[in-house]
Amino acid sequence: MCHGADLSGNFQTPSLKGRLVASWAGTPLSRLTGYIQRAMPLMAPGTLSPEDATTLVAFLMRENGASPAKTALPITEKRQASLKFPALTIQPDTSPSK
């Protein structure tokens, strides 16, 4: 997987955590889904279905700390256009092992 198993990327490949939130917060989800469908994966752009791209968007939100919603993300562009990528805040680390 290009962005690394922990999604942190490397010097050349962007991280899908952290800066991803800064770049996409407040942007309609339809735009992120559209971008993933158009541009990714880089070596075979345009091969992902809307369902796959939507699953990736849900995954990215979860990995970046969004709390799970009760219902699955809608697939249609129109319905996604009214949902925004959330601005997520880092919570203080409360684990005893820190």
């Binding site: 290009c2 050349q12 490949t13 880089l42 070596m43 075979a44 752009p45």
Partner: peptide, 9 residues
């Protein structure tokens, strides 16, 4: 050579 190749790794 590499025309059309977008494997950026």
């Amino acid at each position: 050579g590499s025309v059309g190749n977008s494997f950026e790794h």
